[in-house]
Amino acid sequence: MINIDSLSFSYGRDGFQLSIPQLTINETEKIAIIGPSGSGKTSLLKLISGILLPQKGSISINNVIINQFSDAERRDYRISNVGFIFQDFELLEYLDTQDNILHPYRITRALTLNPEVRTRANNLAKEMGIQSKMKSLTNTLSQGEKQRTAICRAMLPKPKLILADEATGNLDPNNKTRILDALFRSTDKQKATLIAVTHDHELLGRFDRVIDFKDYCLLDAA
């Protein structure tokens, strides 16, 4: 369970201020976050993942306050528990699709790259429809293919918390449904929690809850 209490965060510029008095997200819940650009949706994901630290308040996961962790502890927490699908994919152009998917395994000792992981990476790629692109450099991929590669990379370590920043933003309707299905399926399979930032109001019905950042009010999925 994620519990956010009296959270206050700002970048110290442009008068941007994110304030969340109270927000609780239950385990295995699928949350959609909507709101206008610049309202702090991505910042919230980064705060939950420990990339950013709040100035005030606390973020606790299973009653452990993560913003009191040291840098190293937050990194370990992130790499072991969080799958982050970034808005602009953040793929490395000098690696091919396969190496991008396996990248988290090459940069930390917390994850071990073994044949089972490679097989799982191939299965994930197959599920996402990018198996034929495994040896292609990312600069030769379409936006949709990059998106799916980023999703595979986030899902591969079987995270308990999936943070998706516009995960279906660059996909055509068919792929959008396919990717969202895969994302939901993986989330269910791993009994993970999904928090997804989206501008796509057609998809909101598939989430358990929607958080509108316009006025920080909670909307029922129905």
């Binding site: 993942s49 190293a72 990194r75 790499i79 072991s80 490395l92 930390t108």
Partner: peptide, 20 residues
């Protein structure tokens, strides 16, 4: 810098970036 930020965001330590 963007690539290094990505690596940090994924959970990599500064020591690993230095090692890379």
């Amino acid at each position: 810098q963007k690539e290094i930020n990505t690596i940090f965001h994924l959970g990599c330590s500064r020591a690993t970036v230095v090692q890379l």
